[in-house]
Design a protein around this nucleic acid. Structure first.
Length: 510
RNA sequence: GGUCCCUUCGUCUAGUGGUUAGGACGCAAGGUUUUCAUCCUUGAAACAGGAGUUCGAUUCUCCUAGGGACUGCCA
């Protein structure tokens, strides 16, 4: 293969929300394309008319946008005039390829009904065997290979009898192999392969196998990067390239390891999210009986999702774990993709978000936090909110957790943590707090260190424990035993508010 | 069942024919912090098993076991 421009595609089918595993496949395609200065194509594999789901395509587009994967060609992308072509397979024609394969003897018509095949499967099942439409069985079935006179074949077709076209595996065994970019050389024997349906007359559409191969050819795809679940059908695809005489431009394959459930067995599925309390979809998706949670709506940053997904099955070989999209593009290499499946770890996912959150500027976080503040009836200027956010951001994983860490910067506590009350609000403390009020009222220089000095002076005069008093003071201002530096809090909420809260505490805490 | 793929701490992983097998998440302990969190230090924690090749295998080969994917007129 000469040096063709790298062109890869992400080719989901619009059968529902995009699964996080699919998102990672898209990401690896994207990173690979951009790393090599190539094109990232989004193609919709809607060749199953019975499984089409309304809104799925928009969902896919929106997910790509949210995550920052820029699609060079595909549905939802405006193309220059003259370059208009469809990236939806249902809008494309495959007839010529079907005919070509039939003519060259690489495919044949089959008239077996789904019911009759189902029966054969059941019968095989009862013998603990598996029915396979292949070299060994096709001679006993209702297909054009067994019809001497081709006129009868066309007669049945012309009569409107439903049929499918199947790929004809060779009579004599052949060894098929290819060099997978992540797995190395993979071997298959055609003797073990079945005659897959490549076209169905019922909806006049090809199946995935034919559509995928011919479109990859027509779109000049150079690398097929997809999930490991496609490995078993890869030899069929290789044979299709051969049968269509396209072997010289056949793309290189890379089969990615699967993302596995956090606990238990098997690959990550839609249900695992509810059980484990983490999203398996990029965006929320409305179900008949509720909502499937998305990363976006759960409070994840897109860059955190990209980061954590990139490290599921790939790593740069250094100890760096936090990356921007640009860094990933720079560092990505398909050779460093792992072979084995990776279990998804919800804890680490949260950690990634926390890391990205801490690295964001206070101003940016403040902007995001303002929405919640407004809902809670607090209109404060960005400067103040930024300052607050800066003080507490290291304590949270999500923007949605900010409020519980800093509500006291915006409103007085309405209740006091019982445990802290019991531990700190005792002995001479309430009396001391009462005496502290007039002292603080006298203080003009309302700044953290001045406040601290003043209070320290009082404590010394009364011969009380510094820790005890400060904790009680915190209780009065915050309502609990948490939060950033106390004096900073006092300074920020202001003299009046501080004194207010002190008085309220003395009055309300029992 | 058949075909194919995979196998380093609980999880994500680095790594090499000779290493104290490294990092991260999580967990535990201690320290700092007036408290919580952060932060720092420390700890527990892995080469699936068996043969073979070799002076020496976690690393190479084979076998076994385990896990996974596929096995549709789905993708």
């Amino acid at each position: 293969m000469t040096t063709r421009k790298v062109r890869v595609r992400f080719a989901p089918s619009p059968t529902g929300p995009l699964h996080i595993g699919g998102v990672r496949t898209a990401l690896f395609n994207y990173l690979f394309a951009k790393k090599h200065g190539g094109d990232f194509i989004l193609r919709i594999e809607d060749t199953d008319s019975t499984r089409f789901v309304e809104g799925a395509e928009e969902y896919i587009n929106e997910s790509m946008r949210w995550l920052g994967m820029k699609v060079d060609e595909g549905v939802g992308v405006r193309h220059k005039k003259g370059h208009q072509r469809s990236y939806r397979q249902s809008k494309r024609s495959y007839k010529q390829y079907v005919d070509k394969l039939i003519k060259s003897g690489h495919a044949y018509y089959a008239f077996d009904t789904p019911e009759s095949l189902e029966k054969l499967r059941e019968r095989a099942e009862s013998r603990k065997e598996k029915f396979s439409y292949d070299v060994k069985t096709r001679r006993q079935l209702d297909n054009s290979l067994n019809i001497e006179d081709k006129r009868f074949v066309h007669q049945r077709i012309n009569n409107g009898e439903p049929y499918v076209v199947r790929f004809k595996m060779p009579e004599k065994n052949e060894e098929i192999y290819f060099d997978d970019l992540v797995r190395g050389r993979v071997h298959f024997q055609t003797y073990n392969l079945d005659d897959k349906v490549i076209y169905k007359s019922s909806d006049n559409l090809p199946t995935y196998h034919l559509a995928n191969v011919t479109d990859d050819y027509r779109m000049g795809i150079t690398h097929v990067i997809r999930g490991e679940e496609w490995l078993p059908s890869a030899p069929l695809h290789v044979m299709l390239y051969r049968a269509l005489n396209w072997e010289d431009t056949m793309p290189q394959f890379a089969h990615l390891p699967l993302i596995l459930k956090p606990t238990g067995k098997g690959k990550l599925s839609k249900r695992d999210g509810d059980k484990g309390g983490f999203p398996v979809f990029p965006l929320n998706w409305q179900l008949e009986d509720g909502i499937a949670a998305g990363y976006r709506e759960s409070g994840y940053f897109p860059e955190a999702v990209v980061n954590l997904l990139a490290l599921l099955g790939w790593n740069p070989g250094t100890e760096q774990e936090l990356f921007s999209m640009d860094e990933l593009i720079q560092l990505f290499s398909i050779e460093r993709v792992n072979k084995s499946g990776a279990r998804f770890d919800p804890d680490k996912a949260r950690w990634f978000n926390q890391q990205h959150l801490v690295r964001k500027s206070n101003e940016e976080l403040a902007k995001l936090f303002q929405a919640e503040l407004k809902e809670r009836g607090h209109e404060r200027e960005n400067g103040y909110v930024s300052e607050v956010v800066g003080l507490v951001k290291e304590r949270v994983n999500f923007v949605s957790e900010l409020w519980e860490q800093c509500s006291f910067f915006f409103e007085a506590p309405v209740e006091y943590d019982g445990k802290v009350v019991k531990k700190r609000w005792k002995g001479d403390v309430p009396a001391f707090m009462t005496e502290l009020v007039p002292v603080l009222e006298q203080l003009d220089n309302w700044q953290a260190d001045a406040i601290k000095a003043t209070i320290a002076e009082q404590i010394e005069a009364k011969e009380l424990g510094f820790g005890l008093v400060m904790n009680a003071f915190r209780l009065a201002l915050v309502g609990g035993g948490f939060g950033p530096d106390l004096m900073t809090i006092a300074e920020m909420i202001g003299k009046e508010e501080t004194i207010q809260r002190l008085k309220a505490a003395v009055e309300n805490i029992r």
